[in-house]
Write a protein that binds this DNA or RNA. Structure first.
Length: 702
DNA sequence: GAGCACTGC
């Protein structure tokens, strides 16, 4: 029993009555279950267990601790439990631990509730968007980093917590990065608050430098050695090289599953086919294979296939092999045990942001060293493995960046800036970002928020801005919701905004493109994609969210379901902000005006040559072929600007030119337009509009 | 006439 003393405190084992008391769970005052002791044994074998004493000591002496521990060290599950015993947890102020992903927050909370032998949602809980599994008893809460940021909006000093842990800090998600800066300011005002930053090996020193004087505690990991192989020459075609290498490994290497990293859906589906073909050609000289694609837009049931066991041996007794072809999803979000071979071509699709054009786009680009190490590590989770890098050792050493650029340097910061302003951070230039974004990116964000009326000319948050920040949305979409009652169409706008913040609801499988296009025609409103989506959503609600119906109409029921969840959340926020929910019936002109009231900076005009010109940036664009708008209206609003072979605008609604002056006369005042041709266009339109109005009023006065 | 790495509020 003495081994349990660390957990339970003061058991000297002498007094039998004491012994009974000691085996009681202090959280529930119940006797520990049998399961508790079983789990305890595995817990105690985790490397994190050995760090407990030092951790609690460091916590006494420091306000911030950086903890470095690799996968398998048990840091995420054990450290928070140790901290619960610390004297720094006082009264009702509990501990929270952030995670970049929802599933992680949920599953870790479940696990820890089991370990502590309590009901999930009581002493241990989790909080993610759409689900709060906590109660007033909760002392340990796992939550997404975005969720903690939301909490800060209404509790600026995060006074609910005595200890805040930022887990997976090395991933440098946008939200974790903002939390870093925010917590640094909070620490000044809350000397009782403790911060624990947890990271995989790579970035720990950077965090120490950021929180000056923070000590570092290292916890060893549980990884088996992985042997690294490089190519002698650079590969011209990494997809072809990956396929070739996969087939060779299957033919010549020992038993053990394989993981191949590629960059996207199409690449992965093609590679799967080719690998299957190539291996079939070999006949029964090599074992049977199960080749499984893995990327995020696959339905969960398909994703589950990666956990199927490898196929059994063939007639000759040659063992089978599981080959998973995955995107970066397998680098962080999903771990697959049993992988022995990893093929790393060294590329990934990464988000890049062009502040001048305010466009985020995806580019296939070389990964970082940190990322390559992470990929290799996937081969050593259950036994020693091998990683085949499809690039030379020299390019690994000399060409790859040390770390992936943090997300904050690759993103549009409009909503980040709005959130920071709402948090009371007015001086963004001096805000202590761990990696400060380019000034131009911040300028662009401030400009947009000013155009939307969220910030005044001094850069102060306005009443409108305050309200916009309440919505978990891009600022433009928040503005639309705020205006929606004025345009008598808030019911419709809540649906449309929800639909715009989920993955595409229209499915278009390669083999049934024609059928899918025909199916969409049933919901088509030729005036725009927004109204077409609205029709599809309304039909989905009318069919009582029937998944079969969705499938036969080529609608993505998962997307529609999450749009429904988002809609519910937005509706509640509307009620809270006292914006009436009213419907415009079929007067969709109001919907168009309302859309324009948020997206007036994303308007394009038809040119005489048949192309469109993006009004603000004076940039030639084309309507994306997926749009239902094909009559070439004079003016359109667009939601998204995509940069591929051409400059496309996506999610289009046709509007009447005169709406520009009606919805935002200041912005479309010709006198403030610098570009001459654009100004002339606008002056002409203004003249026409004035004349049209004159005629109308003459007619009505007759 | 064509594209969707991955998350998150």
């Amino acid at each position: 029993m003495s081994r349990f003393s660390a957990e339970q405190g003061d058991d000297d084992g002498a007094d039998p009555s004491k012994k009974i008391r000691v085996s009681m769970n202090p959280w529930t005052n119940k006797v520990y279950s049998k399961k508790y002791y079983e789990i305890l044994k595995t817990r105690q074998s985790l490397p994190a267990w050995e760090a407990k004493g030092q951790l609690l000591k460091l916590l006494d002496e420091n306000q911030v601790i950086v903890l470095q521990g690799e996968t398998g060290s048990g840091k995420t599950t054990q450290i928070p439990q140790f901290l619960l015993e610390s004297k720094h947890v006082k009264g009702k102020k509990g501990i929270c631990c952030t995670q970049p992903r929802r599933v992680a927050a949920m599953s870790v909370a479940k696990r820890v509730a089991d370990e502590m032998d309590v009901q999930l949602g009581d002493e241990v809980g989790y909080s993610i968007r759409f689900e709060d599994k906590t109660s007033n008893k909760t002392m340990l809460k796992y939550l997404t980093d975005g969720m903690l940021l939301r909490e800060a909006i209404h509790d600026p000093l995060l006074e609910k917590y005595s200890i805040i842990m930022l887990d997976e800090a090395h991933e440098r998600t946008l939200n974790t990065d903002i939390l870093f800066g925010l917590l640094k300011e909070i620490l000044e005002n809350r000397k009782d608050l403790k911060i624990v930053v947890m990271s995989a090996t790579m970035d720990a020193e950077k965090f120490q430098g950021y929180f000056k004087g923070a000590p570092l505690l290292e916890i060893p990991g549980r990884l088996y050695p992985v042997e690294i192989f490089y190519t002698h020459e650079p590969e011209k075609d990494y997809v072809e090289a990956a396929i070739r290498t996969a087939v060779q490994i299957h033919m010549y290497e020992d038993e053990g599953d394989m993981l191949v990293f590629l960059t996207g859906e199409e690449e992965i589906e093609n590679a799967c086919k080719q690998i299957k073909q190539e291996i079939q050609k070999q006949g029964d000289t090599c074992g049977p294979v199960n080749v499984i694609p893995l990327y995020s837009s696959l339905p969960p049931a398909m994703q589950q296939k990666i956990f199927d066991p490898a196929p059994g041996p063939n007639k000759k007794g040659i063992p089978g092999r599981k080959i998973i072809i995955a995107t970066n999803i397998a680098e962080t979000s999903l771990t697959i045990d049993g992988i022995v071979y990893v093929i790393d071509p060294g590329f990934a699709k990464q988000k890049v942001f062009n502040p001048r054009m305010r466009v985020e786009s995806l580019l296939v680009s070389p990964i970082s060293k940190a990322s390559a190490k992470q990929r290799a590590g996937r081969a050593g989770r259950t036994r020693p493995g091998k990683c085949f890098r499809l690039y030379t050792e020299a390019s690994f050493k000399n060409e790859l960046m040390e770390d992936t650029y943090p997300e904050i340097l690759r993103s549009n910061l409009a909503s980040v800036v709005l959130t920071l302003k709402k948090l009371g951070i007015n001086d963004l230039v001096h805000f202590d970002f761990m990696d400060p974004p380019a000034p131009e990116t911040l300028m662009r964000a401030l400009e947009l928020l000013n155009d939307l009326g969220a910030l005044d000319d001094e850069g102060e948050l306005t009443k409108i801005g305050e309200m916009m920040a309440e919505f978990p949305l891009e600022p433009q979409l928040g503005k639309i919701l705020l205006n929606s009652a004025k345009y008598q169409c808030s019911e419709e706008m809540v649906s449309i905004v929800a639909l715009l913040s989920v993955p595409n609801i229209f499915m278009r499988p390669k083999e049934n493109q024609k059928e899918a296009d025909d199916a969409r025609l049933k919901f088509c409103n030729p005036d725009g994609d927004h109204l077409t989506m609205l029709n599809a959503y309304n039909a989905y609600k009318q069919k009582k969210e029937n998944a079969e119906w969705c499938k036969s109409n080529y609608l993505n029921s998962r997307s529609l379901k999450s749009a429904d969840d988002v809609r519910e959340q937005l509706k509640n926020l509307m009620v809270k902000l006292e914006i009436p929910l009213v419907s415009c019936g079929t007067n969709y002109e109001n919907v168009k005006k309302c859309l324009l009231s948020g997206f007036f900076m994303q308007v394009a005009k038809l040119q005489r040559n048949g192309a469109y010109m993006a009004f603000k940036d004076v940039q030639t664009v084309a309507i994306h072929p997926s749009s239902v708008v094909d009559q070439k209206p004079d003016w359109v609003i667009y939601n998204e600007f995509v940069l591929t072979k051409r400059h496309y605008i996506r999610n289009i609604t046709a509007i009447k030119g005169e709406y520009l002056f009606e919805v935002n006369p200041d912005y479309f005042n010709p006198a403030r337009i610098k570009h001459i041709d654009t100004r002339k266009d606008l002056e002409k339109l203004e003249k026409e509009t004035v004349e049209k109005r004159k005629k109308q009023s003459q007619q009505s006065s007759k």
